[in-house]
């Protein structure tokens, strides 16, 4: 009753990868949403500074609190969409890994996310590196005040997370493709053995 051929072991490994990475995709979605909402709540002064300093966005008649609330609502709505997309992709991957029926739409969405993630990771890395004042002080004392006082400059941690996410999505994509290929092969073998 057990099948421990090399193909079956590889297939199960891919399924296991897909399930694990699926959970990771969901968690990254929640993290992203929490990060951007947290950014507005914890760095209100910096946010207001950016908005007030902008000719297009600044409205002298509106209070700071209102601006923050409007921004929070917009970011929450956008981040909810992002988190839901992560949830859809993650859950689909988990279902596929567990052998349940799922919509194949998550595979091209994963590919799209890989491209976006790659671009984000590159961008974050270049901005991060250029924002560092690589003098002896920074290297010896790990002085990150420059980064903490900026809204847009990414931290080293967020660069690592973006890169990790990109690798995860790549694993997810290849595991999904492999699983579908194996299933097609298994179905083909089954049909051949039944007709033979």
């Amino acid at each position: 009753m057990v099948d421990n051929t090399r193909e079956q072991i590889r297939y199960r490994k891919s399924c296991s990868t897909l399930v694990r990475v699926g959970y990771g995709t969901i968690m990254i979605g929640w993290w992203r949403a929490a990060r951007y909402i947290g950014l507005i709540l914890l760095k209100k002064s910096l946010v207001l500074q950016q908005i007030r300093g902008n000719d297009v966005l600044s409205y002298p008649g509106i209070s700071d609190t209102r601006i923050i609330l409007i921004l929070l609502a917009l970011v929450t709505a956008l981040m909810s969409f992002v988190a839901l997309m992560h949830l859809f992709i993650g859950l689909s991957a988990i279902r596929e890994g567990m052998g349940k029926k799922t919509i194949g739409l998550y595979i091209p969405l994963t590919l799209l996310m890989i491209i976006i993630s790659f671009a984000r990771a590159l961008n974050k890395l270049s901005v991060f590196l250029s924002s560092l004042d690589l003098n002896d002080d920074v290297l010896l004392n790990l002085n990150v005040d420059i980064i903490n006082n900026s809204l847009v400059t990414p931290t080293f941690a967020s660069v690592i997370i973006e890169l990790t996410f990109m690798i995860m999505l790549t694993e997810q994509f290849f595991a999904a493709v492999r699983i579908r290929w194996y299933r097609r092969q298994m179905k083909k073998n089954q049909t051949e053995s039944q007709s033979g």
Binding site: M1, Q8, I9, K13
Partner: peptide
């Protein structure tokens, strides 16, 4: 029952 033990390297045991 059949399951995959942790030590089995994705091998199935019945």
């Amino acid at each position: 029952y059949r399951y995959m033990p942790s030590w089995g390297g994705y091998m199935e045991i019945m």
